[in-house]
Amino acid sequence: MGVGPGDPELLTLKAHRCLRAAEVVAYPVARLDATGMAAAIVEPFLDPAQRRLPLVFPMVTEPEPLLEAWRAAAATLAHEVQQGRRVVFLCEGDVSLFATGSYVLLALQRHHAELAVEVIPGISSVAAAAAAGAWPLAFQKEGLLIRPCPETPEAMEALLALAKASGTVLALLKLGVRWHWIQPLLQARGLLDDALFAERVGWPDQRVMPAAAVQAGERPYFSLLLVRQGTSAVLP
């Protein structure tokens, strides 16, 4: 179940209804003593009688620990359902977009196919950032590419060229440390004034502003950039 990027008021009505009906509320954490961002989002709506079920997903890139975590989470969720309990698994943002929930869903489908699973979409950080900045994501025939930020200036140059040639708006996630070289690169191409920068979307310390207002340097992991290089749309 997608719970949006941070603001509890961005929870959908369907997500709220299913959340309130659940007996077990499961959510991802990096370690057992952590709260979990998805759990923090829905905390205002939880009832003390609902059992909290943190599921550990290590912050690593090696495949084996990740596979083990996804399969273990699926097995735990399946066990709860098989005991006749109503269970929801929370996911920050949208459950199908760069989400831990996507891998858990695949593990459930492959190893516990007998279970009935419903996927409830959530608002993504990209959509929430565009709305907060009054920045239309795509006009008319423009394309929209959502992807993690490139790792090198060369890759970024190639992506900008491809996007410009195809009339595609770029939504680049996980800027983090890369902003120190992306900012001057965009500045040299005159793209900062029309780009939108956002970090910690939906949280109390959210920042959404023109990219030209953000100096080069390291930014939080949960930061993103929206870049448009001109448009062929008929605009008012």
Results as ranks from 00 to 15, higher is better:
Ala72Met: 14
Gln140Asn: 12
Pro48Glu: 08
His180Met: 08
Glu23Cys: 05
Leu67Ala: 13
Pro236Lys: 11
Val201Arg: 07
Leu66Pro: 11
Phe197Pro: 09
Leu66Ile: 04
Leu11Asn: 09
Ala158Arg: 11
Leu172Met: 02
Glu43Met: 07
Leu172Glu: 00
Ala113Leu: 08
Gly2Leu: 02
Cys91Ile: 07
Ala78Pro: 03
Asp33Tyr: 07
Ala72Lys: 04
Ser223Glu: 02
Asp47Ile: 06
Leu191Asp: 03
Leu46Tyr: 05
Pro153Ile: 03
Ala49Phe: 01
Ser102Ala: 14
Pro236Tyr: 04
Leu67Asp: 09
Ala78Glu: 00
Leu55Trp: 00
Arg228Val: 11
Ser125Asn: 09
Glu157His: 15
Arg20His: 13
Val119Tyr: 00
Gln109Phe: 01
Pro150Cys: 12
Val214Arg: 14
Glu64Lys: 12
Glu142Asn: 10
Arg31Thr: 11
Leu185Ile: 02
Glu43Ile: 05
Met59Phe: 06
Val208Gly: 03
Asp7Ser: 15
Ala216Asn: 09
Arg71Leu: 13
Gly217Ser: 07
Asp33Pro: 10
Trp203Gln: 11
Thr168Met: 10
Arg110Trp: 05
Phe222Asp: 01
Ala78Thr: 11
Arg85Asn: 09
Phe139Asp: 03
Ala107Ile: 06
Gln187His: 11
His111Ser: 09
Tyr103Asn: 09
Pro236Ile: 08
Ile120Cys: 12
Arg189Trp: 02
Ala233Pro: 09
His180Val: 14
Ile41Pro: 08
Ala130Met: 10
Val119Trp: 00
Glu68Met: 10
Ala138Val: 09
Pro5Cys: 11
Val60Tyr: 00
Leu137Gly: 07
Val201Ser: 08
His111Arg: 15
Leu191Cys: 08
Leu159Thr: 06
Leu225Glu: 01
Tyr103Val: 04
Trp70Arg: 13
Gln183Trp: 00
Ser166Gln: 15
Ser223Thr: 00
Leu32Trp: 10
Leu235His: 14
Arg228Met: 10
Gly143Asp: 06
Pro150Asn: 03
Leu225Thr: 04
Phe98Trp: 10
Pro153Phe: 08
Gly93Pro: 01
Arg189Asp: 03
Arg86Phe: 05
Gln183Thr: 01
Met156Asp: 03
Leu144Glu: 01
Leu137Asn: 04
Val24Phe: 03
Pro5Asn: 11
Val227Met: 01
Leu145Gly: 02
Leu67Met: 05
Gly122Val: 06
Gln50Met: 13
Gly6Trp: 04
Leu11Ala: 08
Glu68Thr: 15
Ala211Trp: 00
Met209Arg: 13
Arg31Leu: 07
Thr35Gln: 15
